[in-house]
Every structure is written in structure tokens, then in C-alpha cells.
Design a protein around this nucleic acid. Sequence first.
DNA 1: CCTGCTTATACTAGGAATGAGCATAAGCGG
DNA 2: CCGCTTATGCTCATTCCTAGTATAAGCAGG
Lengths: 318, 318
Amino acid sequence: MNAAEAGPIIQLVAVIIAVTANQPRVLTVGEATSGAPLALPSGPLDPAGDRTLERALRSWVRRQSGLQLGYVEQLYTFGDAARRDADGRRILSVAYLALVHEQQLAPAAGWQDCYGFFPWEDWRAGRPPMLESATAALRARTGAAGANLLAPELAERLEIAFGLGEAGWDPERSLERYELLYEAGAVAEATLDRGLMPDAGPAATLGGPGMAQDHRRILATALSRLRGKIKYRPVVFELLPERFTLSQLQQVVEALAGVRLHKQNFRRLVEQGGLVTSTGDYDYGTGGRPAKLFRFRRRVLRERAAPGLRVTPATGGA
Amino acid sequence: MNAAEAGPIIQLVAVIIAVTANQPRVLTVGEATSGAPLALPSGPLDPAGDRTLERALRSWVRRQSGLQLGYVEQLYTFGDAARRDADGRRILSVAYLALVHEQQLAPAAGWQDCYGFFPWEDWRAGRPPMLESATAALRARTGAAGANLLAPELAERLEIAFGLGEAGWDPERSLERYELLYEAGAVAEATLDRGLMPDAGPAATLGGPGMAQDHRRILATALSRLRGKIKYRPVVFELLPERFTLSQLQQVVEALAGVRLHKQNFRRLVEQGGLVTSTGDYDYGTGGRPAKLFRFRRRVLRERAAPGLRVTPATGGA
DNA sequence: CCTGCTTATACTAGGAATGAGCATAAGCGG
DNA sequence: CCGCTTATGCTCATTCCTAGTATAAGCAGG
């Protein structure tokens, strides 16, 4: 057999996340000014040289962008048949999620606001208005499915993903939401990928121009994973400087979860949970009473099985 | 460039789990009687035919074993340079986790007891005795690292993975435990893979003959994932028949988590949590008072964000 | 039919964790 | 000193969990 024809191309994709100025950011390549869509950084696997996939990723990220990645975890492997390169060869992408500290942020690089790609995911200022049009488009499709047997199942997925039932909005389900919108043709790339979706309807440009190929789906996968993970593993600290105030910590968590939290309860959770220790120092630049500076307390890993930060939205809404 | 030389081979691997007679089982291929090590079922990705990786997996599993898979999720992609086929070509394996109902169990197929591969993971009858030798081997290695800078970090990983600190035993960390044992040369395949581990020591056959290649690592990954997932998604029901008693449900959870649970509290959790509804029927074959038969209540997905089964070990220990 | 065994189910006291809010402290600019 | 800001401390009612005790309802054997 001919391996040249048989084997898909293997690609590594990096979703590199940082939080700056209360916004989750993702590193992209391609200029935003030109018409070319933004893309996630990706690179090859050198089958001869790289001992592990993760090492391969680290090495070309460092070469390409100068970033020395710290926390890295494998995210998902994307292999749908529609993924092809210019020559029509199938591409298999192994995606990784990386978290970098704020100061590591290379100044010139293309950091993009994550919620620019998913405006409906940020509830920090209350329920995002465009959710109405999004769910309306989806409901229309459910209705359109009509006599189709898929309708009730679709309706259930919709209800669960967008928190229309008693469960309410679950930040973790961002991937499911993206997938529903994609299937409904309500995001830009959906209509490009398939011609078979005539009911694209009015909301075809939800969330801006999207990204190259299926990179927006990869980013949605990363957001889901990250939002889930902060609940039971202390990954937030990978995004913060060595020393931080509790407000900073809370703001990073809120930025990731896209939800506001109750300040006093958050503080209690973090302090009583043993996740941080006070350095004796203060931050005087808060604009009010100076804030104690803390650092992550590694020992908590030995003390508690699942040390994370529960994200229970504050009642106030806004 | 020559794609035939450059591209690794892509393989799909299936970890197919069922629970029968209170034991988690995994489907394997290769005869246990001969000396050939057992392997997880694996198959190719047909780049021309299969639209998605998951479909590809489902189709060759059905052809090979006659099993029609229900619940399937992607597990992890394994791509270390050491993974090679007979011709020395690098293999990239995309592993999937599948759960099947007990009655789907093909009779003749090679179902193996999972804890045969990881005897230290089953705490249902109390702390497994061989843990002593395992941790002893690991401690020896930590000690041996001596002046090495790695020592404290290794000691911390050991403490966390095996629950030596206040946190106690965390069923979810089965992969970390396997990896530590592998690194220490305390499982059979470790010494085979590298010659560079002289201090294999006395415990070199922990957990029996192992599996082909790195399949035991893949199985450990699956166990970790599954143990984690039952806590926040109702996946257990994929392993049970349509109707079941609460004791059956509890036994399946216990089998997966490898831990005993408090009966009354488990019942309350499940019933008050709205995870099940009573069918009006009873199972009279329990040997005692007849047990109500329940079924999974799908609606809970709409009502609760993370409907799962917390696994808090019962105090009794044994 | 009563006894003793089994497993299933009901209920409860005490404690810990959680959700929501009030109150106070300590900077700053005027 | 006033009024604004942000940070921090504390309370209180409620829910949830832990670890039990107690009761129900089968079966086998005498």
C-alpha cells in the first residue's frame, strides 16, 4: 500500500490563553486587518525529532512566537473528513490548551479577545442581548424540523445547552452551544462548510467573522474545558502572576467563567479552602483600601482531593 | 517532501467497558492462554471513507466484534516516539472510551477484569495489600534520587497520587499512579520499553503481565476519565440495563470507583437528586426484601447543571 | 407459624458548607 | 473632615452531608 496516499497529515494546534485587563485572550496568527481569517497557531509533528506531541508543540511555539509555555494539556483531536489542506489531503489536528501568565504576553503578538468570537458566552454584564436572536434562530430550526423525529431531541439539547430549563445557564457548556449554532447555520463558518443548510436565516453572522477552518470550534472546546477544570483543579493560578490580590483572582475566574461571583463568599472559599497564603505585603494601587497580596499554596494539592473554585453566579445578575 | 516517510500511521483504539458481576470489564483481543499479551481492540482510519473518527471507530468495532456501541467519547491521543509498528513507523493512536450495557456483552469475546491490570485500584475490600510494596518501590526511588533536584517534586507527586497526605485516596488519580509506577520501573512494560531503568527492583511484576505496547496506560487513562466523569455526568446508566434497583446502581458505581459507599446516603443522593424514577415494579430476586425497580430520568439533564454521583467512601473501610 | 437470616427502605440528630447580606476598615482626592 | 473607592470581617438562616438507628419484607428451616 502507499502510505503517501493513505495517511492523513498530522498537525498540532495550540490554544494559548491569557487573561489581561479582565478579558480572556487567545493567541492567533494572521493579520486581523486583511480579509484573511484569524487562525490558531499550528505546526507540524516531526516524526523523527519530537519525542512526544507535547514537546513538539512546545518547541515550535517557542520558535514561532518566543513564548515559553508553562501549563499545557491535551485538549482534543479533530479529524472530520471535511478538514483538508490546499491539496485536498485530510488533516488530523491534535489540539492543546496552554495557559500563560499575564506578563509573558509577547507585546506585538496577535492576542484576541475570546468573547469576540463568542459574545453570548460573557454574562458578566448580565444576560447578553444577542442571545435572543441566537435562541430564536435555533427555535425556528426546531420548529422547522417539524414532523421530523429529530425535533424533540433537538429541543432538549437546546434547552440544556442554553439553560432554558430549571438548570439555568451552565458556563461549561460553551462547546455544546457553539455546536448547536453551527448546526443551525447561525455562525459564519457553517454556511461556508456545507452548502446543505439553506435556512441560514437572519443570524448568520453571530459572533463576527469567525476563524479559519474549524478553529472557532477548537476554541470553544478549550473554553469548555477550562471552565470545567477550574472547578476541581487549581489551574487559574497559571494565569496569574506569582503574587496577586483576591480581587485579581476573582476577576480572572469571572473572566473565564463569564459570570460574576459573590465577593465575600469567593474570598471565604479561597481562604478557607487553603488555596492561597498571604505574603505579608499589600497592593496599594487598588483605588481603595490596600489589598493583601497572596500566593498559591501548593500544599493544598496534598490536602484536598479536588481543590478548585466553585463558580456559583452571584444573584445580583449585573 | 515525501509524505510516505513523513507521516505517522494513524490508529483508533477502543476502550470498551462493561460492568458484570460487580466487576468492571474491558474488551480485549488476543488469547489470554498463549504468551501473546492482551491488547485493546484497534483499527484503522479510512481517510477516504470515514466521515468522522468516531464513526470510523464504531464501524470497525461492529465489524470486528459485532458490538453496536452506544455511548462513545474521545479519550486521548497517544503519540510518543516510542510507539512504532513492526516496520518501525511511528503510530499515533486516538483512543476512545465506550460504555456498553451488560446484556450487550458478546459471550465469547475477551472481556477482562480491569482490576486484573491494576490490583491496587480496587479498595472495595479495604486497602489492597500490594500497595505497600508499590509505594515502597516508589519511595525507594525517591530516596535513590537523593541529592537529585527531582526528589522533592517526585515525593510530592507520590504523596498526591497515592493519597498519603491528608487528602486521602482519590480514585480519579489512577492514571497518575500508573505513570509513577511506570517511571519507577515497577510495572512489567516499563523495563521492556527502556533499558535505562536499572533500579527495577523487586516489584517488577506488579499487576500481572500487563498489555501489549502502552495499552495498559490507555486503560488507566480510561479508568481515570470514567471515575471523574461519574461525578458530574450521568454516565453510569450507560452501563446498566434499562431498569435496575438502587443496589445494582450502587454496585456499578462502587465497581467503577473501586470504593464502597454508604448505602442510605447513596439512595438519598440518587432519589432526591432526581436521577431516577420508580417504575412501579419490583425485583424479587434480591434474597431479601424485594427492591423497587428504577429507570434513569432523562429530565434531570434539564433540571441540574451537573447531575452525577458523588463518590464519598463509606467510613467503615472494609 | 415462629425464628433467624437476608436485603431494602425510612427516618433523624448533629455538623459542615453554602448563599445572601450587613458592617467596618483603610486608602484617596478634595 | 467628607465622600468616594475597594478590601475585609462577620452573621444568620438554610441547605446539604455524615453517620447512624429503626423498620419492612422477602426466604429457609425448624
